[in-house]
Amino acid sequence: MADTVSVPTPRPGAPAGRRRSPQARPHVRRDHRAALFFILPALLGFGVFYLWPTIRGVYLSFTDYSLLTPPAWSGVANYTKLIGDASFWRSLAVTLEYVVINIGVQTIVAIALAVLMHRLTRSSFLRGVLLLPYLVANVVVALVWYWMADYTLGVVNQFLGWIGFGPLGFFGEEHLVIPTIALVNVWRHMGYTALLIFAGLQAIPRSLYEAAAVDGSTEWRSFWRITLPLLRPVLAMVLVITVIGSFQIFDTVAVTTQGGPADASKVVYYYIFEKAFSQFDFGYASAMGVALIVILAGVSLFQLRLLRAGESDLS
């Protein structure tokens, strides 16, 4: 690992950095020594707990490994198994359903909230209140909604009763469980996402809105003609961040349904967790992890292309 993260020691003799005036040299060398001192703890932590596990994980994905005996090289066996594993594809489909509902609803709500805040008020109190759910642990959020959506005593079903709907088994029915978990996490993340978008909105000059209003444009038209086009680069970044996060849904599932009922909420993360820590199939779990990285990278690239994130219309 040390070879890949070139340790910045000043090598005497070797041409250290740029060759400039000779007087500058001692200074540069002092720089290097100080740099090593400052970067060392973080570099150590990064090497041991981020870089090495990543490399090790890729290696393990080509092995048969149960933690008890040393990993045995098995070539691409895990990957061929992966392609034929219906449970894996099912978990991927479940995750995708979750991501689509979660991101779809969350993005629309967050844009609406951000625009409303932007056009109505600068109150940071209001922004803070909307951010509150994001600061509370996933576990807490999951438990509160599990209680509120309880079939017999949950307040959500009481509300539904008042407007004439029968009680729903939000966490207990196969076709409802993923939408339910997706919406619970919309509740947790909508204020956070709105805040990121709000930051982007502040970069749009107010004069544009004033000019549009003088020309008789309505708020509604200004939103579609000014706000949304100019927000595109920010929106692209926010989407990439939130989609990556959304794919990693685990806590809510682990605390409430444990993948049930009948695997209806067994998302990829939970499936990997189960393979690794219930069945101790570390090789196969690592292979699924690699697949997840590839999928995430692909989805992110696709989004950035589609939304032309690099370009701005503001110029």
């Binding site: 993260v5 070139s6 910045p8 250290a16 950095g17 540069v28 720089d31 290097h32 740099a35 090593l36 970067i39 570099l43 990064f46 707990f49 981020y50 870089l51 090495w52 596990p53 990543t54 090790r56 994980g57 393990l60 990556i244 794919f247 990693q248 685990f250 993360y269 990997i272 967790f273 690794a276 570390f282 779990a285 690592s286 992890g289 690699v290 997840l292 990285i293 995430l296 990278a297 992110s300």
Partner: peptide
């Protein structure tokens, strides 16, 4: 200023792309 600074920084940032569960296993 030190050699490889920007490369190491880039490496740090790419670590944000790796899903935590993948790192958690090793």
């Amino acid at each position: 200023r030190w050699p490889g600074r920007d490369k190491v920084f880039f490496l740090f940032l790419t670590a944000l792309m790796v899903p935590p569960i993948f790192i958690h296993l090793p």
